[in-house]
Each structure stands twice: as C-alpha cells, then as structure tokens.
Design a protein around this nucleic acid. Structure first.
Length: 263
DNA sequence: ATGGTAGGTCTCCTA
C-alpha cells in the first residue's frame, strides 16, 4: 500500500514542526508540498532524511512558490514543467520505479490568478488560463500510469465551495477556470480520487487567513486535489482532507489531502 | 462595498 499526501505549506521552513506532526500521525509514504517559498539549497532535506524521508525532489525559487516531493520509498527526479512560461517553480514530477509499473507522480501548483477574473484587466488571470491550456496539451500525450496532485487553485464543483452563487465571479470558482481545469482532467483521463471517495457534501481544503474565525465562518473552498489515471484510481481508498490541521499552531491556510492506494 | 492576514524579503510582492 502507498499513502500519498499533498499540502500547500506556505513556507516549509517555518512550518517544519507541523509537517513532522502530520507525517508522524498519518503514516504518509510520499508528501507533495507546494509554496515551499525557498530555493533548493535552503530546503530542510537533512531533517526530512532524519525522520525517514530521504528521497527528495525539489523545484524551488527565491521567496515565492516552489514545490517539493519527499518520500520514504525510492523516487527518481523525472520532470519540471514551466506551463506558465515565466520561470516560476510550480511543478516537479517524479517516477516511483518500484510501484505501478513505473508510475509518475506529478506535483503541481497552479497559479492563483489574481483578483479580477478577466485576462484583459488582469495579466495573472490570463497566465493561469494559459498554464492550464499548456498543461492540457501536455496531458493529452501522457501514456503512463499517473497521479497528479497539488494546489490547483480551482474548486470545480458546487459542493467544493461554501456558496456557489456568491463565488461564480470570484477567482478559483469562475466557469472559465472550471472549464479549463475540466479539459486538463479530460485530456489526462484523470479521476478525482477524493470525490470518488466522498461524492456527497461540502468539502474544503482552504480557508482564508483573513476570516476572523475560519472554523465558525467555514467559508472554505476545495482547492487541493488528488487525481489519478483509472488504472491507479481503481486501487484508491480512504481519501480525506485533514481539516484539523488548519487549526494547528501557526497553520498553513491549506489543509493536507491524502489517499491510500493498494498498488 | 470594503478590508481583512500571512510570509519572505529588502520595500512591496504574492497569495
């Protein structure tokens, strides 16, 4: 069995204590982190090795963004795509050679896209859509067993947001973004593993820091996802979002999402 | 309608 997790950590160096807590309490084999906010040489690789995660692939940059995959089982650095074509570190792919006939695990941090959902008025929104279009063209050629996880910065379903109608013009839930993400999903033939497990009911992975009381207000969105090609998703079970981690000391604004695979 | 918080960095950008 393989237990995979994804977590937008909002500075891995600041939040090492809660990362260690999450790994220790949840028996995670591979953790995909987004928003590590450091360069590769600043990544706390020694500490991860000490706690049993010696296999690491980092795509970092100074100050912003950045992704890393840390693992108990052997992984091979496989790819780094720049689907925004602007040098930002938002993807790292690894091969898991021993499992699932050489499965690929893609760790993706889709751009947030700014505040105005219009590419004429907001360059960042256009870059977000461009990122998804390039990802779709790449996905169309994927011909291996693949898992793709990360902070996709889009809540695709009505039950992935606290108020569907109120968020239709809010970046992360606009129809054009949902459509773009759906095309990428279709091109890669990926199954939403979390929603396959939990098809009904409101489900969130992110709550803004700006809310006075995130837990009571509960104005969340499901921005973090675990998808897999059918050959792998058939072996998935127990996908959950660890809401409690949003309430830990010095939390990230995202909660981790995970799933188990009998591979 | 508005502003609210957080992190990294070097003065404000990104989320």
């Amino acid at each position: 069995m393989l237990k995979i997790a994804s977590w937008n950590i909002n500075s891995v160096r600041l939040r090492l204590p809660i990362v260690e807590r999450f790994l220790a309490e949840n028996d995670i084999d591979i953790l995909c982190l987004q928003e590590i906010k450091c360069q590769e040489q600043q990544f706390p690789a020694r500490r991860f090795a000490e706690i049993g995660y010696p296999h690491i692939a980092v795509h970092g940059q100074k100050g912003y963004h950045g992704v890393a995959t840390v693992s108990r089982v052997l992984i091979n650095d496989f790819s780094r795509h720049d689907w925004q074509d602007n040098g930002e570190a938002r993807h790292v792919g690894v091969e898991i050679p021993g499992i699932g006939q050489g499965m690929i695990l893609e760790n993706v941090y889709v751009p947030a896209g700014g505040d105005i959902p219009d590419r004429e008025q907001n360059v960042k929104f256009g870059q977000k859509l461009d990122f998804l279009e390039r990802m779709t063209r790449w996905a169309d050629k994927v011909d291996r067993p693949t898992m793709i996880v990360g902070d996709f910065n889009i809540a695709p379903l009505e039950c992935d947001v606290w108020n569907h109608k109120q968020l239709l013009k809010v970046v992360s839930h606009t129809p054009v973004e949902v459509e773009h993400l759906g095309q990428a999903q279709e091109a890669g033939r990926w199954v939403d593993v979390t929603r396959a497990d939990i098809p009904q009911g409101l489900l969130y992975s992110w709550w803004s820091y700006r809310a006075r009381d995130w837990d009571a207000a509960d104005k969340g969105r499901r921005l973090d996802h675990i998808w897999a090609t059918p050959d792998i998703s058939n072996a998935a079970h127990g996908s959950r979002i660890l809401r409690a981690a949003r309430g830990w000391e010095k939390p990230s604004d995202h909660a981790p999402v995970f799933a188990s695979f009998d591979l």
